[in-house]
Simulated scan of single mutants.
Amino acid sequence: MSRFMRLLVLWLWPVMAQAAPVIMVFGDSLSAGYGLPQNQGWVHLLSAKLTPAYQVVNASVSGETTSGGLSRLDSALQQHKPTIVILELGANDGLRGLPLKHSKANLGAMIEKSKASKAKVLLVGMQLPPNFGKPYTQRFADMYSELAQAHKVPLIPFLLEGFADKPEWFQNDMIHPTAAAQPFIVDRVQKALKNFKP
C-alpha cells in the first residue's frame, strides 16, 4: 500500500468505523472476560474477526442479572444503536436461585426492547450445575428455548457447550472459562451470526 493510500485509510477510518453496523454484546462476566486480560476474552476475539464488516461493542457487566440488564438496556441501545444484540444473561439469576418466571420476563422484555429499536437479537443460553436439582436446572435450560420460540429469535442453546465438563478449561472458580477456551466460544457465536446480514 502506498503512503498516500495509508494516509487516506487513516483519515477515513473514523468515518468507516462509524458507518459499520454495530454488534452489541449484552451479557455478564462470561462476556465481560472476567479474570482475563482484556484482549483475550471472546468478545475481543470476535471483534478482531469481524472488523471492518462490523463494529463490536461489549456492553457486558460482571455479576449482571436479568433485572440489572433490563434496567440499563434502554441507555445502551440509545448509546450504541446496534444492528444486532447478542443477549447473554441469566446465569447469575440461576446461580442465585432467583424465580425463573422473573428471569424469563426480564429476558423477554429485553428481546422486545431490542427489536423495537430495530436491532436483531441473538439469544445465548446457559445451563446450571446439577447440584441445583433437576427440576430447576431443566426449567432454566428450557427457559431459553421457550423464549427463542416465543419471540422468534435465533438461539445458541449453551454458550459453553463442548467443554463445560472439562475442568482444565476453567479458571480456579470453575465458573469462568480460561483464555484457551475463548476461541471455542468465538467459533460458536460466529457460526450463529452467519444468518445475519450486515
Results as ranks from 00 to 15, higher is better:
Leu8Tyr: 09
Gln40Phe: 08
Glu168Ser: 14
Ala141Lys: 15
Ile84Trp: 01
Lys152Asn: 14
Glu64Val: 03
Pro177Leu: 02
Val153Asp: 00
Arg188Leu: 13
Phe158Asp: 03
Glu146Met: 10
Ala180Ser: 14
Ile175Trp: 05
Leu107Thr: 06
Ala105Cys: 05
Asp74Ile: 00
Gly97Tyr: 03
Val9Met: 02
Gly125Ala: 13
Val57Phe: 10
Thr65Lys: 01
Gly162Asp: 09
Phe196Asp: 05
Leu8Ser: 09
Ile175Phe: 01
Ile111Pro: 00
Lys166Ser: 06
Gly162His: 12
Pro177Glu: 05
Leu98Glu: 06
Ser62Glu: 09
Tyr136Ala: 11
Ala116Gly: 06
Gly162Leu: 09
Ala109Asn: 08
Ser60Ile: 05
Asp74Met: 03
Ser31Thr: 12
Val124Cys: 07
Gly133Tyr: 10
Arg72Glu: 06
Ile111His: 00
Phe140Arg: 11
Glu64Asn: 06
Leu50Tyr: 00
Glu146Phe: 08
Trp169Phe: 14
Lys118Glu: 02
Met16His: 07
Thr137His: 08
Ser29Pro: 12
Ala76Glu: 15
Lys152Met: 03
Val57Leu: 06
Ala20Thr: 11
Leu122Val: 08
Met110Tyr: 01
Thr83Arg: 13
Lys104Phe: 04
Ser31Pro: 13
Asn106Ala: 04
Ser60Gln: 06
Ala53Lys: 13
Gln55Phe: 02
Lys118Asn: 12
Ser67Leu: 06
Ile84Ser: 02
Pro52Gly: 11
Met16Ser: 11
Gln138Val: 14
Met24Gln: 00
Ala192Pro: 02
Arg188Ile: 09
Met126Ala: 11
Asn172Met: 04
Asp74Cys: 04
Leu95Asp: 08
Ser71Trp: 06
Ala59Ile: 06
Met5Cys: 03
Glu168Pro: 03
Ile86Gly: 04
Arg3Asn: 14
Met143Tyr: 04
Ala32Pro: 09
Glu161Trp: 15
Gly41Thr: 07
Ser2Leu: 15
Gln182Val: 13
Glu64Ser: 09
Ala148Met: 12
Gly90Glu: 09
Pro183His: 06
His102Arg: 05
Ala179Lys: 11
Phe196Gly: 13
Ala17Lys: 01
Leu122Lys: 02
Val22Gly: 06
His80Glu: 08
Ile86His: 05
Gly97Thr: 03
Leu193Trp: 12
Lys104Ser: 11
His176Asp: 04
Asn131Pro: 12
Leu12Thr: 10
Asp28Phe: 08
Gln79Asp: 04
Ala150Thr: 14
Gln171Gly: 01
Leu95Thr: 14
Met110Lys: 07
Ser31Val: 13
Asp173Lys: 01
Trp13Thr: 09
Ala76His: 02
Leu30Tyr: 12
Ser60Thr: 05
His176Gly: 02
Gly94Lys: 02
Val121Ser: 11
Phe196Gln: 12
Trp169Leu: 13
Ala105Arg: 03
Leu36Gln: 09
Gln78Met: 06
Leu77Trp: 11
Phe26Gln: 00
Pro37Gly: 09
Met126His: 07
Lys101Trp: 01
Pro129Gly: 11
Lys152Gln: 13
Ala164Asn: 13
Val153Met: 04
Asp28Tyr: 08
Ser60Lys: 05
Tyr136Thr: 15
Glu168Trp: 07
Val61Ser: 01
Val25Leu: 02
Asn58Tyr: 11
Leu87Ala: 00
Met143Ala: 00
Leu147Tyr: 12
Glu88Asn: 13
Gly27Thr: 12
Glu168Ile: 08
Val85Pro: 00
Pro52His: 10
Ser117His: 02
Arg72Leu: 04
Val153Ala: 04
Ala181Arg: 07
Lys134His: 13
Lys81Asp: 07
Met16Cys: 07
